[in-house]
Design a protein around this nucleic acid. Structure first.
Length: 226
DNA sequence: GCATTAACCACAG
DNA sequence: CTGTGGTTAATGC
């Protein structure tokens, strides 16, 4: 376990900024920081959930088993909590989290996390805000996913990764084609095909894992029109 | 019918 | 792990 001092942490969550000195002491003695290498599993679907995971740095994929394939639910960039729905929704993890870049995670004992919710209204409020924002994003994604065709979904995903994860029109796409398929609910072949079409039309440029968005406006149009 | 879309399979780098 | 081509099934003019 790494030495850590929650009070001095530079990457506090919006919620944790509302904790007082005493609460930070409690947090510190009931949490542990762990480093995960790219590809390592952070918590696994089906296991018993005993803590809240707070993603301090890095990027993670959140995924669960579907009837036929794996489904990638979200790509999460730090800082963000990872396991709140698990902690309060069920004792058993309903989904897994896997690092797609080197990552540092703080695990917080659920009981103490729960106590903060009970006793500190501002803390609880920030947690609710985060949950609500995520829920709204999920609603948007689910409606897109059920109504857009594959080119629209691929375009949407590229824009989303570029804007919200990397803030750059050029980025290393962190998933394999297969995982990209799992993310938009389609086959790796279809993703492949759409990507090469986009590349042929000079809308994006592909160098292995590196993707550059050349014509953002046309990509947005494709995303919008489904 | 004919066209489009996308899944599944197979095979080659 | 990826890209591509052939085939097939579903859906919509």
């Amino acid at each position: 376990m790494l030495q850590h001092h929650c009070k001095d942490c530079q990457i506090k969550s919006a919620a944790a900024k509302n904790l007082n000195t005493e609460e930070f002491d409690i947090l510190e003695s009931n949490s542990a920081q762990v480093i995960f290498k790219k590809g390592e599993n952070i918590f696994k679907e089906g296991a018993l959930s005993l803590n809240v995971a707070y993603l301090r740095t890095g990027i993670v994929k959140v995924h669960m088993h579907g009837p036929t394939r794996e489904k990638i639910l979200r790509i999460v960039k730090a800082p963000s909590y990872l396991g709140i729905p698990i902690t309060f929704g069920d004792k058993i993890n309903q989904y897994s989290a896997t690092a797609i870049e080197d990552t540092s995670v703080c695990f917080i004992d659920s009981n103490y996390f729960r106590n903060f919710i009970y006793s500190n209204g501002k803390f609880a409020y920030e947690i609710i805000v985060e949950l609500c924002k995520n829920e709204l994003k999920d609603y948007h994604r689910y409606t897109s996913q059920s109504q857009k065709q594959i080119p629209g979904l691929v375009a949407e995903t590229l824009l989303c990764i570029s804007e919200t994860i990397y803030n750059n029109s050029r980025f290393n796409f962190p998933l394999t084609r297969n995982e990209f398929g799992d993310m938009v609910g389609t086959s790796r072949e279809s993703v492949s095909r759409v990507l090469s079409e986009l590349s042929n039309e000079k809308i994006i440029e592909i160098n292995g894992k590196e993707i550059t968005i050349l014509k953002k406006d046309t990509l947005e149009k494709i995303s919008k029109n489904g």
